[in-house]
Simulated scan of single mutants.
Amino acid sequence: MTSPFAPDTLTGKRVLVTGSSRGIGAQTVTYFAQAGASVVINYRSKAVRAEKLVAQLTESGTTAFAVAADLTDDASVTAMFDTVHAELGGLDVLVLNASGGMEQGMAEDYAMQLNRDAQVRVLQTALPLLAAGSRIVFVTSHQAHFINTTETMPEYEAVARSKRAGEDALRALLPDLEARGIEFVVVSGDMIEGTITATLLERSNPGALATRKEAAGKLYDVAEFAAEVARAALDPVPADHTRYVGDTGSFTG
């Protein structure tokens, strides 16, 4: 897909995208880099994959580096932002993309640890690096954003509720962010074709993707949705701080 930005649109900007060694995060950070931004690729454990992306992005002269961090661990998050400060001096855009909760073998409350507690931890730890005019983008799904009023698939409910809890916890910080001159926007998207979450849902609930696609009329793919996430870092912030991507009729009707 063509980049959502003209060349050099983001020259001089510094961007960190959590969970960006693959999928939506990797494509989002690629769009930022193609537009001239210096980018930080955050990953938890897949160093080879992250470094491969760094190599691809730096071939064109972009400043890019990868930082490992378990976002559920205080010390790991602090160390990540210490590295970012040392390398870039600060940040202009922080994209809170990392999420999970459907993995096997994790603690029972892992979804809440990652999708709520870790999101707040990352934002608060990043605050000293974010000056007035910077922006924070939180990525979520319609199934999570509307979970209080619209049921979702049982296989996804725990994740949806934890992501909604994370969104609520971040929105509670809006007064402090606004006092600092920091902008905040939530990007809510429908099911995205080609993501790990969609694959896991399809595996546990065969036909789920096709059913949702028929109801929505269209589902975005990874590249299309990543472009919307990237644009959210520059476009005017909606009055309700929410950018909707894809059909919402099934959730608001």
Rank of each mutant, 00 (worst) to 15 (best):
A6S: 14
R22W: 06
V229K: 04
F5N: 02
A35E: 10
Y110S: 08
A98L: 01
R135S: 06
L177Y: 02
T9I: 01
D240Q: 05
T211M: 03
E51R: 14
K218N: 10
T83H: 08
A215S: 07
M102N: 11
R212T: 11
E193T: 13
H85G: 15
I192H: 09
I136G: 08
A132Q: 13
T211N: 04
A75E: 05
A172H: 06
R171E: 03
F251A: 10
A144Y: 04
A208S: 11
A208T: 10
A6Y: 01
D190K: 00
T11D: 01
S45H: 12
V139R: 03
F5A: 00
P175V: 10
T78G: 07
I196C: 03
D73T: 11
N148Q: 12
R161I: 07
F251P: 02
R171S: 00
G181Y: 06
E51N: 15
L219P: 06
R164T: 11
D8W: 03
E108W: 00
M191D: 00
R44H: 14
G249D: 14
A79F: 07
K163R: 14
V237I: 12
N115V: 10
T9V: 01
T195I: 09
G90Q: 14
E167Y: 04
M112Q: 07
R180C: 08
V17W: 05
D168S: 13
T248V: 15
E183R: 09
R164Y: 09
S250K: 12
Q119C: 04
S134E: 08
S141Q: 08
A26P: 01
G61D: 07
T11I: 02
L114C: 08
L53N: 04
V222R: 05
L209H: 01
V54L: 02
P4R: 12
A169Q: 05
T140V: 11
G217R: 02
L170V: 01
A68F: 03
T9R: 15
F184L: 11
V122P: 03
P206Q: 07
M102I: 13
I147T: 08
Q119A: 13
Q56F: 06
L127D: 10
V186A: 04
G207W: 06
V245D: 09
K46H: 15
S99P: 00
V29Q: 08
F32T: 03
G246R: 07
A239Q: 04
D74W: 03
A131C: 03
E151I: 00
N115R: 01
V137K: 04
T9H: 11
E202I: 06
F146C: 00
G19W: 08
I182E: 07
T125S: 09
L88D: 07
P7G: 01
R171K: 13
A160I: 01
V15I: 11
I196M: 04
G207S: 10
S162E: 10
T140S: 12
G253H: 09
P175Y: 12
L53F: 03
G101W: 02
T58Y: 02
D70W: 02
F81E: 10
A223Y: 05
D235V: 00
L114N: 05
E228A: 15
L10F: 05
D176H: 14
G249T: 09
L16P: 09
A239I: 00
P238G: 01
Q143E: 13
D176K: 15
A66T: 09
L114V: 15
F81P: 14
V77E: 02
K163Q: 11
A216Y: 10
D168H: 02
A6V: 12
F5P: 00
L123W: 08
P206I: 09
L209T: 15
G90R: 07
N205H: 14
